[in-house]
Nucleic acid binder design. Structure first.
Length: 466
RNA sequence: GGCGGCGUAGCCAAGUGGCAAGGCGAGGGACUGCAAAUCCCUUAUUCCCCGGUUCGAAUCCGGGCGCCGCCUCCA
């Protein structure tokens, strides 16, 4: 397969070329100081879908997503609540896995924690110091940006202009305002680890480099995250990794667009966020996934309830076909002409997916398949062709985590009761007692049981609960 | 100010050189006792504007206008 992805680094489509069929993929994970919000969920869902698509195409994917369990925000939160940072981190790590599951995300192959890697980070920083790429100052260690000629290549920034525009209050311990911290000296009461520069803790940009290379080796095939991480986070990762190892850190850099609310970026600090858990609970797993995957992953996406509602309706339309088709008996052959159409649409689906992971275009193809299925039903093609269409939709959508739900079932006795009401209604209709017949239909609809009168008799289906 | 990106129907949205996917919604028709669902038709002669290149441009180039993100922790 030839999957091409837009790399932020090269600013062009890059062929994914894994060695031995193994894709080494790293996605920036959460800082566990709170539950993540629905905007944070975008990369989790999008890159989960990418990973699963690659797996569906026969590749092995080693998917690593870090957990930052030592960081300022965790310490602050711990102080606010009067508990230990470890307790905060443990709590929200658990919540993170819980919410990932709610989003229908397959657990990462590896979920390394920063605190498990402190020793290796110390070794890494020591090597940078040894090579003269970093320096110690007052118990802190800084990376010397001037020592890495490629600095700015990911974000397209130019060193001189960055310095000119530096808004940060210059820390006098830094030799250059752009230098960033690799190791922070411990303040009283903070978690700390021993190091050649005294007790302290690792700085923010180091963990991803150390953990990803430790687990995946160099270079990574894909390094991914939100577009807000391009600078400085990923730029700084490249600087550390490449200046030390002297080879490319990651072949492809992927960045998802941010979630906005009425055009403004969703952020914890802006207060315009909603927790992912809250949104999934309200709208459901698949509507949330559909909402994200029906938009190009690189573009900004505006969050709205109406957008989620629309996703829900679109999804229901597909299920109306799937559930109906799957209830049909296997009968008749799949005509060669239909088989050809299915092959053609399947190829179209993959063509969209392979061109920069165009899930939105690919979902459009799935809707085309559903239309084809309906048309076959209309033409009286018999059960088998429609079932074949439904099966293909299910298969193609599986890596997206869409259209996988089974028809809601009711227990045997309730099913018998519904059948009884339908029988009764049929009699009433024969007797032209439409008022009562309609009342049965309306009341059942209110209870979530929809009746449809077809030439083959009355069919019923259950609406999924809100 | 610098860097990155976006602007396609009423709304959401794919498409980056060869007749403008798809979803939601709206209107008309078929079907129905009436509905619902479904099917058929209609809803962008045109892709923010102005120039240019080309046999041909939403797609490439130049110039505007508007919006967003990053430049500070942030998915």
């Amino acid at each position: 397969m030839g999957l091409r992805l837009w790399s932020t680094l090269s600013r062009q489509l890059e062929e994914l070329s894994p060695q031995d069929g193994v894709v080494r993929m790293y996605v920036c994970g959460p800082t566990v100081y709170d539950r993540f919000h629905i905007g944070n969920a975008r990369p989790f869902i999008v890159f989960d879908a990418l990973r699963r698509y690659l797996e569906a195409r026969g590749l092995k994917v080693i998917y690593v997503q870090n957990i930052t369990d030592i960081e300022d925000k965790i310490i602050n939160r711990a102080q606010e609540e009067g508990v230990s940072p470890q307790e905060i981190a443990a709590r929200y790590t658990e919540e993170y896995f819980h919410d990932l599951q709610l989003l229908g995300v397959k657990p990462p192959t590896h979920s390394p924690k920063a605190t498990q890697y402190v020793e290796k980070m110390v070794e890494f920083v020591a090597k940078l110091v040894e090579k003269g790429l970093a320096y110690e100052a007052g118990g802190d260690v800084y990376f010397s940006v001037a020592r890495f000629p490629g600095y700015g290549k990911l974000s397209g920034k130019v060193l001189e202009e960055l310095e000119a525009g530096a808004r940060i209050a210059v820390d006098e311990r830094k030799r250059d305002p752009l230098d960033f911290v690799l190791w922070k000296a411990a303040k009283p009461g903070e978690p700390k680890w021993p190091s050649p520069w005294g007790e302290g803790r690792p700085g923010w940009h180091t963990e991803c480099v150390v953990m990803s290379t430790d687990i995946l080796g160099l270079p990574l095939d894909i390094h991914a995250g939100g577009s807000d991480l391009v600078f400085p986070h990923h730029e700084n990762e490249i600087a550390q990794a490449e200046s030390l190892y002297g080879e490319p850190f990651s072949k492809i850099w992927l960045h998802n667009g941010l979630l906005t609310v009425r055009g403004e970026r969703m952020g914890k600090s802006l207060g315009n966020f909603r927790y992912a858990r809250e949104v999934v609970t309200e709208f459901g797993t698949e509507p949330v996934r559909y909402f994200y995957l029906s938009r190009a992953y690189r573009k900004p996406l505006d969050f709205s309830e109406s957008g989620l509602e629309e996703a829900k309706r679109a999804l229901q339309g597909v299920y109306d076909f799937l559930w109906e088709a799957e209830a049909l008996p296997e009968e008749g052959e799949v005509p060669a002409e239909v088989a050809d159409q299915l092959t053609e649409l399947e190829e179209k689906f993959h063509a969209r997916m392979e061109e920069d992971f165009d899930t939105a275009g690919a979902i459009g193809v799935l809707h085309e398949l559903v239309s084809l299925g309906h048309r076959l039903g209309q033409e009286g093609a018999g059960g088998s062709p429609q079932r074949a269409v439904a099966a293909l939709v299910r298969k193609l959508a599986e890596p997206l985590g869409l259209f996988q739900e089974a028809r809601p079932q009711v227990k045997g006795r309730i099913e018998d009761l519904i059948s009884l009401l339908i029988e009764l209604r049929a009699t009433l209709r024969e007797q032209k007692n439409f008022q009562l017949a309609d009342r049965i239909r309306d009341r059942l609809a209110e209870l979530g049981v929809e009746l449809r009168d077809t030439p083959q008799g009355t069919r019923w289906s259950l609406r999924a609960d809100e």
